[in-house]
């Protein structure tokens, strides 16, 4: 079947089997390998992307379900000139990543956390991250980074 969607503002299309998951569409058909697969039970969140602006686990969404919709991946956050998004910068400045495998998912779910909360405190951030697992950082610096990004971005959102 044919799916057509917008990925990071670009129109994309592919012919896929119905059983193709959104994460496979992104990685295998579009070559966008920033989105990672860390489990097979919707538990780890490494595959998190934004679908119409909201975080979803792209391993639990069929490509067909994303047809006609808008997807944002980790590749779509920095400016065209390579300038990192304030959230990406906050992750770097706060050492919120080590091996970096969970990072795209962490960043994308954090985009939703930032968008959905006018104010943030540590508990809210931790609850927002509950569906994303990290084995390296102990979350301490990820939480700091999201709070710092909120501070930095303030009214932008």
């Amino acid at each position: 079947m044919r799916v057509e969607l917008t990925v990071n503002g670009q129109n994309k299309a592919a012919d896929v089997e119905p059983r193709t998951l959104l994460v496979h569409l992104l990685r295998e058909d579009f070559g966008m390998t920033g989105t990672n697969v860390g489990c097979d039970t919707s538990s780890c969140g490494a595959c998190t992307v934004l679908l119409d602006g909201e975080s979803v686990k792209s391993c639990t969404v069929l490509a067909a379900q994303a047809d006609g919709r808008s997807v944002t991946t980790i590749e779509g956050l920095a400016s065209a000139d390579g300038t990192l998004h304030p959230l990406q910068r906050a992750f770097q400045e706060n050492h919120a990543l080590q091996c970096g495998y969970c990072t795209p998912g962490m960043v994308m779910v954090s985009m939703s956390i930032l968008a959905e909360n006018d104010t943030l405190d540590e508990a809210t951030v931790r609850e927002g991250l509950e569906g994303n697992l990290c084995r390296c950082t102990g979350y301490h610096n990820i939480v700091k980074a999201v709070l710092a990004a909120k501070e930095e971005m303030g009214a932008e959102l």
Binding site: T33, I74, Q88
Partner: peptide
Amino acid sequence: RIRREDPKLLSGENRFADD
């Protein structure tokens, strides 16, 4: 000192083996 490794890992540009 912030890490030089991070920008690529933060923008999906690095390559893991499956990538």
